[in-house]
Amino acid sequence: QKIIDPTQAPPWAPIDCEKLGRIIEMLEAAAKQASRRWPSKKLAEVAAEIYNALGHEHTFDEARVERILKLVINR
Results as ranks from 00 to 15, higher is better:
A30G: 04
K42W: 10
Q33I: 14
L20T: 01
P39E: 15
R22I: 12
D16Y: 07
A29E: 13
L43S: 07
L20K: 01
K2I: 15
I68F: 09
I3C: 08
T59D: 08
A29W: 13
A63C: 03
I24Q: 07
P10E: 14
A44H: 11
A47W: 05
I50Y: 04
L69D: 03
E45L: 10
S35G: 03
I68Y: 11
A53W: 06
Y51N: 06
W38A: 04
K41F: 07
D61M: 06
A13Q: 14
R64M: 13
I23G: 04
L54T: 04
R75Y: 09
K41W: 12
R64S: 12
L27F: 02
N52Q: 02
H58C: 06
T7C: 11
K19I: 04
R67I: 08
K32F: 13
P11G: 03
Q8V: 15
N74Q: 01
I68L: 13
S35Y: 15
P6G: 13
I3Q: 10
P39T: 14
A29H: 15
K41Y: 11
Q33A: 14
V65F: 06
A30S: 00
A13G: 09
V65T: 02
I3S: 05
E49M: 01
N52V: 10
A53R: 11
D16K: 05
A29F: 14
L54C: 11
S35K: 06
I68H: 05
A63R: 03
S40Y: 13
K19Q: 05
E66W: 04
I4H: 01
E18D: 02
Y51V: 05
R67E: 10
M26Y: 13
L69M: 06
P39F: 09
K32R: 12
E57D: 08
Q1Y: 15
S40E: 14
C17K: 12
F60H: 12
G55Y: 15
A48Q: 12
T7P: 06
R64I: 07
P39S: 10
E66P: 03
Y51W: 15
W12C: 09
A63W: 00
E25P: 09
A30K: 01
I3R: 06
T7E: 12
K19F: 13
M26I: 14
P39W: 10
A48V: 11
I23A: 04
F60V: 08
E49K: 02
A44R: 06
Q33S: 14
K41Q: 13
A31Q: 03
V65L: 00
P10S: 01
A44E: 15
I50A: 00
K32I: 13
E25R: 02
I68E: 11
N74E: 15
I73R: 05
A47T: 09
E57S: 02
A47K: 00
M26N: 14
E49S: 03
K19G: 10
Y51H: 06
Q8P: 12
P14T: 11
T59V: 10
P10W: 10
I50N: 03
A44V: 15
L27Y: 07
